[in-house]
Amino acid sequence: MRPDRAARGAAARLSGRRSEVLAAVWLMLKGYRILGFRLRTPQAEIDLLALRGRTLAVVEVKRRMDLQTALETVTFDQRTRLRRAGAMLAARRPSLAGAAVRLDLMALAPGRLPMHIPDAWKGG
């Protein structure tokens, strides 16, 4: 791998981790409890897993120039895998039995506050 490509990859990973931490802090300020970061499951990797009340939020974090681009970046197949991963995690943890699983988006854009969109892809 070329050094410039490796450096860009490292910078992108660092930016992604920073975005996830910022998203987690934002959600905690809204009353969510963060249960996990970058959770790997057989179905998908979950950026953030958060709980508020009886709602388990599978949160996809995207840093893009605008909200529409962030929404479009997550494909239908990826959303399906993320929902399955969240349902599987909820089923395996007795404390989450009966929790409603929801797929949320945290969109971050330069110079703007984070935007949390609960149930970002209703039905899709």
Rank of each mutant, 00 (worst) to 15 (best):
A10C: 00
S19F: 06
V101E: 06
F37N: 09
A107N: 14
A91R: 13
R63Y: 12
R17C: 04
D47P: 09
R17I: 07
M106L: 13
A97F: 08
V21Y: 13
L71T: 01
R2K: 11
I46Y: 10
I117E: 12
T73M: 01
D47W: 10
D47V: 10
A85K: 02
G16R: 01
A107F: 12
T80C: 00
A50D: 07
V25R: 12
E60F: 01
K122R: 15
T75P: 08
V58N: 07
S95D: 11
R84Y: 10
R5W: 08
D4P: 05
Q68F: 01
A7H: 08
P42I: 08
Q68K: 03
T75V: 05
W26H: 15
A97P: 00
G9H: 06
V58C: 05
R102E: 15
G111F: 05
R18P: 00
A7M: 01
L82R: 05
A6N: 02
L67R: 13
R8Q: 13
V58G: 11
W26L: 03
A87P: 00
V61P: 05
A7C: 00
R33D: 11
M106E: 11
R79K: 06
A100M: 03
I117L: 15
L71N: 01
M88E: 15
M28T: 15
L89Q: 02
A10L: 06
R38E: 15
V59K: 02
R64H: 14
K30C: 10
R83L: 14
A11E: 06
A90T: 09
L27S: 07
A100H: 13
P118K: 12
R8G: 02
M28Q: 15
S15T: 12
L89C: 01
K122G: 14
L35T: 12
P118E: 14
W26A: 08
G53S: 09
I34C: 06
M106G: 08
R5I: 08
A85V: 05
G111M: 03
R64I: 00
G16E: 07
A107G: 14
R64C: 02
T75N: 07
A12F: 05
R112W: 12
L71C: 01
A70E: 10
V58S: 03
I46P: 11
A24M: 01
R2Q: 09
G124E: 15
V25N: 06
E72W: 04
A120M: 07
G124N: 11
S15V: 05
L82S: 13
V74K: 02
